[in-house]
Design a binder for these strands. Structure first.
Lengths: 180, 180
DNA sequence: CCCTTTTCACCTAGGTGGTAAGAT
DNA sequence: ATCTTACCACCTAGGTGAAAAGGG
C-alpha cells in the first residue's frame, strides 16, 4: 500500500533547463526486529507507545528503488512546487512483481532521496558519479508495519486522505486544530 | 464527451531518438448544417439512415487543437504501438474552458492528424515549416451529434467500451461475429 | 417535431480502515 | 500473544447510455 505519511520535498538550485530523475530507496537502520511494547498490568492496547527489540533482523531484500513518476523532467518543473512521492507503495511480499518497495514488517528503515542529472553528453556513463546526489533526512526514519499501531496515526490519515472519508466522524476542516 | 470511434494511427519512418509532438484538430467539411432524414409515411425513427441539408452552417469556432497526452515522446515510443487518441473530448459548448475540441452539432468535420518534430536547434522557430507534417484521412469524416442517430453505433460502443458494460445484454466476445 | 441539456443508475479503476480468520 | 492475510463496505474519480425535461 501507499506509504503514509507521504515523503515530500522542496527543491532548490537545479538548472531549470536540464533534465533530472528523482528517486527514493530505503535502507535498514539497524539489524534488529521490533515488537509492540505494552504497559505492565494492562492488556495489549492499540495505543501502547513503545517499540521493544525482539531479536535479529530478517534477511534483507535486494532493495528496490522508486522513480518519481514525473521523471525525467526539467529542473524548472521540479522546483516550482513541492515534490510529493504519494504514488510510492510499500509491500512485505518478497515475490512482489508490481515494482513496489519491499520492506520487512517490524523493521526500521531510513528513506533516502536521490537526484540524478540527465547528462546530455554521449559518454554520460563516465560522469555517473558526479551526476548523482543523495539526501537523507533522519527525521523520516520509521518502523514498517502491516497494521496501524497507533490510534492517532489512524485518525490523522482518516482526516487527511480523501479515500478514507467513509471513516470520518467530523469535518476534516475542524482537524487537527480541535484535537491534540 | 470522448469521441467515438477513437482516432487511431500506426506510425512509421520517424527518427527513433528524436522527440515528436502528436496532435489533432478538426476542420469543417462544408458550409452546411444537417438534419436527420426520415422515410415518408413513417414516424421519426431512431434508425433512419440519411442526412439532409438543413441550411447554412453556424459560425465556426476559433478551432482548438488536441495534443496527444504522451507528447512529447521519442519516435521509438510512438512507433512501437498504435497511437490512440482516446482521451480526446468533444463539446458543443462555445464557452468550454476544459480545453476540449469545440464542434457545432449537426455539422460535418474532417479530423486532421499532425506530427511536429521537436527541433533541438536553438533557432528552431525558423524551421517550423519543415518540421511539421499533416495527414488527412477522408474516411474519418463524420457528422457531430449530441445524441446517437443510429442503433448500431450505440450497440457497437456498448459492446466495445468497458464503461458501458451495464448496458450489455450478451457477452462482448460474441460480438460482432453473431450480429450483422 | 427535432434537437439539446440535465440527471441518474451503472459501470471501471483504484485507495481506505475495519474485521474476522489464519499463522507462528 | 502478536502479527499477517483476505475480504469487505465505503470512498474518490471519471466514463457510459437511458430517460426525462427543456427549447425553439
Amino acid at each position: 500500500r501507499r506509504m503514509f505519511p507521504t515523503f515530500q520535498v522542496k527543491i532548490f538550485g537545479m538548472d531549470p533547463m536540464a533534465d533530472y530523475m528523482l528517486l527514493m530507496d530505503f535502507v535498514p537502520v539497524d539489524d534488529k526486529r521490533y515488537r509492540q511494547g505494552a504497559f505492565p498490568s494492562r492488556r495489549y492496547a492499540f495505543h501502547s507507545s513503545s517499540w521493544l527489540v525482539a531479536g535479529k533482523a530478517d534477511p534483507a531484500t535486494p532493495g528496490r528503488v522508486h522513480y518519481h513518476p514525473d521523471s525525467p523532467a526539467k529542473g524548472a518543473q521540479w522546483m516550482k512546487q513541492i515534490v510529493s512521492f504519494d504514488k510510492l507503495k510499500l509491500t512485505n511480499n518478497l515475490l512482489d512483481d508490481n515494482g513496489h518497495i519491499i520492506l520487512n514488517s517490524m523493521h526500521r528503515y531510513q528513506p533516502r532521496f536521490h537526484v540524478v542529472y540527465v547528462d546530455p553528453r554521449k559518454d554520460s556513463e563516465k560522469y555517473a558519479e558526479e551526476n548523482f546526489k543523495t539526501f537523507v533526512f533522519e527525521e523520516t526514519r520509521f518502523t514498517a508495519v502491516t497494521a496501524y499501531q497507533n490510534h492517532r496515526i489512524t485518525q490523522l490519515k482518516i482526516a487527511s486522505n480523501p479515500f478514507a472519508k467513509g471513516f470520518r466522524d467530523c469535518d476534516p476542516e475542524d482537524w487537527p486544530r480541535n484535537h491534540r
